[in-house]
Design a binder for these strands. Structure first.
Lengths: 191, 191
DNA sequence: AGGAACTGCAACAGATATGTCGCAGCTATC
DNA sequence: GATAGCTGCGACATATCTGTTGCAGTTCCT
């Protein structure tokens, strides 16, 4: 239930919402059960000021999930998954996604209501992901007998794992390269 | 701070503790923020009965993490990581770990205090994991230039991902086989 | 410039979770 | 079979989180 511009917010209101969501992400990322009070403190305002924009804690969380999911979808789109050569698309998408997932780790790790906008977006992303993999398979980059759904899950897992250690250890492109390489070739000896 | 048999619990007390931990895992697995009340209900007793054994919510959570970590360590040991041939050890360990992680998903996904017993056990498991991979590398199963720490993280990620979809879809051995195969060969075309 | 929308907060109210205590009745274990 | 340890629970005390309302001051938009 994302605010579909039902009432186009005034400029300052929109800024306000963004600032609150960013503060919420920051706080919840390292304390998932944090209270509204803590989130408000991170934003530098009183708790009730947040309640003005978000009727309930639940509403805030949902907005957070939706906002993050939109950014993630954008990150995928920016990689031109349907037109760029598969390897290029995979690399670009991976690098983009790493950045978004790094910035919105909590929001994107949230269990989502099956009929929320966030869930719909995630499913769409999943479909586009499979599509790219299919194109890669057609180009003989992926084994023709491979189960693309398992490949996609492996891909997701590698991205998730890349965000754990030394988050700022290397630039997204380096990390992306390693992910794609591991996805396609594994750890075994090179031919 | 696991109870190091400081005072050997009476037989029934030990049973009691186990039952509570199992109920807690069950409830917390699908509602991480569940209250003591809900956990008590799952166990079929009053909330205060749980408080008798676990002074605080925190204490219960820690005990849960420690108990699960011990079982995980046991699962690894059972695979004879130091003596069995690397491939055999990897397969057995993977199958064992899948079972334990499936049963204690919440407890093992808990962020842990660096100096808790659970954390120490996890680190030890990590070391043994690296050791097995090293043996596999010596046997030319893993590329000699591979970064074993990244391989380990990839391995962890694959295990985690295997537990998401259709958890009871296949037996642990089948899942383990796929994990090892993907770890070593990736999704690319087979030679 | 002027009105509508927005920010900000204190004070209040209600709900919920946590933790303590004491008493009554079982059950291992010696 | 006695006794120390255990279970179980109701009642109470407390802390914390959530959500509402009313009022004062500020900022956007036309």
């Amino acid at each position: 239930m994302g605010e579909k511009a039902a009432q186009p917010l005034r400029a300052d209101a929109e800024r306000s919402v963004r600032a609150i969501l960013e503060a919420a992400e920051r706080v919840l990322a390292d304390e998932p059960g944090a209270s509204m009070e803590q989130i408000a403190a991170a934003r530098g305002v009183a708790r009730t000021t947040i309640h003005r924009r978000f009727a309930s804690r639940q509403a805030l969380i949902e907005a957070l999930a939706t906002s993050a999911a939109r950014q993630l979808a954008q990150a995928v789109d920016d990689g031109r998954p349907d037109t760029a050569p598969p390897l290029v698309a995979m690399h670009r998408i991976t690098a983009n996604v790493l950045q978004v997932k790094g910035a919105w780790a909590f929001a994107l790790g949230l269990p989502e209501d099956p009929d929320s906008e966030a869930a719909v977006l995630q499913q769409d992303i999943g479909r586009r992901c499979i599509a790219v993999l299919k194109r890669a398979q057609d180009d003989k980059l992926i084994d023709e007998a491979a189960d693309l759904d398992w490949v996609r899950r492996t891909y997701y897992a590698l991205i998730g794992e890349s965000l754990h250690g030394s988050t700022e250890g290397a630039d997204p492109d380096t990390l992306a390269a390693r992910i794609i390489d591991t996805l396609l070739h594994g750890a075994g000896p090179r031919g």
